[in-house]
Amino acid sequence: MSNKRPDRTTMEGMIWNANHVLDKALDPKTPGIPRGMIKNCKGVILLSMAEAGFIFSGTVGSGVIIAHNEDNSWSPPSALSVGGIGWGLVAGKEVKDVIICVMERGNVDTLSAETQVKIGGQLSATLGPVGREAETSLNFNGTSEIRGTYAYTWSKGVFGGISMETAVLKVRPKENARFYGKESVSSKEILENTLAAPKDMGVEDLHYKLDLLSKGKALVLTPAQVERKSSMRNLADEAGVLAKSVQTDVMEVDADEEVA
């Protein structure tokens, strides 16, 4: 299967990339995320961030946030931007895939507000422990030991914890409205399960993989899953082309110029 990533300025592309991030976390060759971390979190943020070039340029990116409900189900995804988003010339620079486990519902509510939230300012995302059995060293009884936001990254073939101190996250209400087919929709509505996600857009795959993570499972993609991933990538690219004429929060940038 091609390693090419789709346009990630649309929800279709961001959902594809979120599934891609989870594939990395579920790979049996990686240490994985502690199952208790996913089981007890109140939300998960799945991002694609770049320091320069590739699809994005500068320290920018995009992604989704998904709330974890009391009944252990997952909400539909809400669109986020990191700093700002854009597409430009492919320069082959580093892309980081990031998973952030949000351990408090109040922080999920903060992240669903349509204002900028600074990681390291309003929120603190610290190094997350790795290893599917690592929860034995944590306290998941609501003590301050897990009262925070924990970040993991996949970069240059290495999966592990990172500390995020400068990222600025913001909800993308217009992209949410486009994807959910409504004139207006708030991130709060999405994360509180008041509307359903469009069918067969990869959201069901996200929920399935998050459930696997919460059980400490690993996943090796079957040929059918690989083919589906390829089809979803093509769908995301098509959505990106169609959305460019209506997107107002996306800027075109020259990656080489940004690097210089």
Rank of each mutant, 00 (worst) to 15 (best):
K170P: 00
R132G: 01
I99H: 07
E165W: 00
D109W: 01
E183K: 13
K174W: 02
L195A: 06
N107S: 12
A91N: 11
G181R: 02
K118C: 06
I162D: 13
S144F: 09
L89Q: 13
I190G: 10
G86C: 12
L127K: 12
L169W: 04
I100K: 03
G88F: 02
V82E: 11
T143N: 13
S144N: 14
S184E: 14
E192I: 02
K156W: 01
T153Q: 15
F159L: 07
I190E: 08
M103K: 02
Y152S: 09
G120N: 10
K96R: 14
S137E: 09
E114R: 00
A151Q: 10
F179A: 07
V102M: 04
W154H: 14
L111T: 08
S186A: 14
E192S: 15
A177D: 07
Q116K: 13
V98Q: 12
S137G: 12
Y152H: 08
E145H: 08
G120M: 09
F140H: 09
C101T: 15
G88V: 00
L138D: 08
A177T: 05
Y180Q: 06
A151H: 08
V108K: 02
S184F: 05
P129Y: 06
G160N: 08
S163G: 13
S137T: 10
I100G: 06
Q122V: 00
W87Q: 07
K182P: 04
A91G: 14
G92Y: 09
E104H: 03
L123R: 02
P129T: 07
V82G: 06
K188Q: 15
E183G: 15
